[in-house]
């Protein structure tokens, strides 16, 4: 699974992009975020406030209950501020 981090999530985690292999019980967006938070450090800090985080799975906006699976591209970022 490919993870992408944008804006302050990239700064706080210190990571722009990584390949991860979460355990099989990580099957949803919410479970993935909890698993990432469990790594501690910058990840725990960045993921503390879930209301400040948006997630896209394979470049589509996703909700906490939406599935994630091996091979997916999952992006984590704050609410958008373009335009």
């Amino acid at each position: 699974m490919k993870l992408l981090y944008f804006a302050w999530l990239k700064q706080k985690t210190g990571c722009a992009e990584e390949e991860v292999q979460p355990p099989a019980e990580v099957a949803t967006v919410a479970e993935l975020l909890s698993w990432l938070e469990g790594r501690g450090g910058g990840f725990a800090e960045a993921l503390a406030d879930r209301t400040a985080i948006r997630v896209a799975v394979n470049q589509e906006y996703a909700r906490p209950g939406d599935p994630v699976k091996p091979g997916d591209e999952v992006a984590l970022f704050p609410p958008v501020t373009g335009g």
Binding site: F6, A7, W8, A56, Y61, A75, F77, P78, P79, V80, T81, G82, G83
Partner: peptide
């Protein structure tokens, strides 16, 4: 576009600080 397109603004002040703009 302002609520759906994945862009993020970071402001840079003359004193060198940076600040991620929050969604309104």
């Amino acid at each position: 576009l302002k609520t759906k397109a994945p862009f993020w603004k970071v402001e840079e002040s003359r004193s060198g600080g940076t600040n991620w703009v929050e969604a309104r």
